[in-house]
Write a protein that binds this DNA or RNA. Structure first.
Lengths: 272, 272
DNA sequence: CAAATAGTGTCTTTTAGACAATATTTA
DNA sequence: TAAATATTGTCTAAAAGACACTATTTG
């Protein structure tokens, strides 16, 4: 009797067709624009994400997120880390789960569901040349996501001459699950425009209390650097004095200082 | 050439073994203990979750979450809603994604990964008798999760004489992903003790700004009811005057009032 | 010194918390 | 009227925002 039931449960498992499962990664970093008017000026920074050009069908020539199939013996987090390492040769400072994307027809190749992670790359851990063991065409795109009208968002991605964009609608299901729905899409593969919008929104939520901000910076950083990260991530601006007070409980002094920047040296801090 | 590549990508998909994917649901509701000293007293409330007794191996006789396999043509959210409806015959007021549970050996039957949702059942939508079309043994268990020492948590589940418990350690991976790890486990199947702790933690986070609190209540509710829900969920207590001010921006008056309760009638509010 | 960023102090406004007091209903 | 909950007001403390001011370094 017991063994019969046991058999039955295993039998049921095999009865159903199974989906392929992938981990897709939206890798974020801060890009410094080194075209300054004066040697004293702090460099302009931008938020950017990693995209890979698709060499084959479907969506040939479109840009897609890094990602790949979950393999037996690994967790989905391990899979995500592996995929982003293969693509960039570096280990991300952090990985955060964003959500599952499981629309039955999201991938023309078949039944493929994706677990999506937002990863943050630490400043300084980057080599200029991206592209890992396989010679794929991977580039960092400056990203912006703005609410153009109530519930409607415009996503822009830019790398030199390459410009991708999408229009998204913010929707909430009856059961309260939020999702961006693609209204218009130029140059992004699959449902990746929606995925990117969801990932940035998730990261912004974490940035409010600085969690994800630290991950963009080296171990030791100035408070101004930290403020820039938060401002770029949340698309806000703050008065320095107020920022310093707010962040005070989250950092500790290291005793070290910056130097040689043409102005007063800054204290270096560490995440508490 | 194009078609060759196309073939290749499909080929790769079939090359890999695929996991079975389930949606598991931690269904929460507020239970009223109707053993009052006086007719005037408000009833005591407790937070409880739905568990199903396993009739077969593995973990025969243990208690498990409601859940089942993802089927072709449905999203993982639809699957989760379907599973909880099959078990309780009611539609949850809300579903929130908690996380993926993908440890390779989490299920002795084979490679099974789970997407976990926390669902909230609205007060009044419940029939006393749970158990859906299949005559499974499903019960609501009062739940408590307390930090006994730094990073160590004690989970208790109670239904009459049935008492389940677990000890969990709060852990964060190098990449900043949080998870409860099971240290001790009495009566719960699989990794469900960990899943439950993660779900309650996620729900509590949402409760701070009332989001998940509304889902426990009928469309119209008193501020005292709302306060009770938050207090039970977050295991805190507040001074009514302060609670009212804090919640004021999230609710609107309906113009209706309670009556017949042996004390001053209360205004009924609606979620804004 | 001028330019540029670093860091402090203070005032005001907004929230959050504690507590007292008043209001209303039913057995 | 007593018991119980509903609701408002007020005082205090803490946090957030605006702004002025001082400090330090390098060409």
């Amino acid at each position: 009797m017991d063994t019969e039931k046991e058999f039955l449960s295993t039998y049921n498992m095999d009865k159903y067709e199974r989906p392929s499962v992938t981990a897709d990664v939206v890798a974020f970093k801060i890009t410094h624009t080194d075209q300054c008017s004066s040697y004293r000026h702090e460099p302009e920074c931008k938020l950017s994400i990693l995209l890979v050009k698709r060499g084959g069908h479907p969506f040939k020539g479109c840009w897609a997120l890094a990602g790949g199939f979950l393999q037996k013996g690994e967790t989905i987090e391990e899979c995500a880390v592996r995929e982003i390492q293969e693509e960039t040769n570096i280990t991300p400072a952090s990985m955060r789960f964003v959500g599952m994307f499981t629309e039955p027809n999201r991938d023309p190749r078949g039944w493929i569901i994706s677990a999506v992670f937002a990863s943050v790359m630490r400043e300084g851990s980057m080599t200029d040349a991206v592209g890992g063991d396989d010679a794929t065409d991977a580039k960092w795109f400056d990203i912006s996501l703005d609410e153009t009208e109530q519930g409607k968002y415009s996503l822009h991605l830019q790398n030199g001459d390459i410009s991708l964009s999408a229009v998204l609608k913010s929707e909430t299901t009856e059961t309260g699950i939020h999702r961006f729905v693609i209204v218009e899409n130029n140059g992004l593969a699959f449902d990746h425009a929606s995925i990117i919008a969801n990932a940035l929104t998730a990261l912004r939520k974490e940035g409010i209390h600085f969690q994800s901000c630290f991950d963009f910076l080296p171990e030791e950083f100035t408070l101004t650097q930290l403020q820039r990260v938060q401002e770029i991530l949340l698309n806000t601006s703050m008065i320095p004095a107020n920022f310093r007070r707010k962040v005070a409980d989250y950092v500790t002094e290291t005793g070290n200082h910056t130097s040689g920047a043409g102005h007063r040296p800054a204290k270096l801090f560490r995440k508490k």
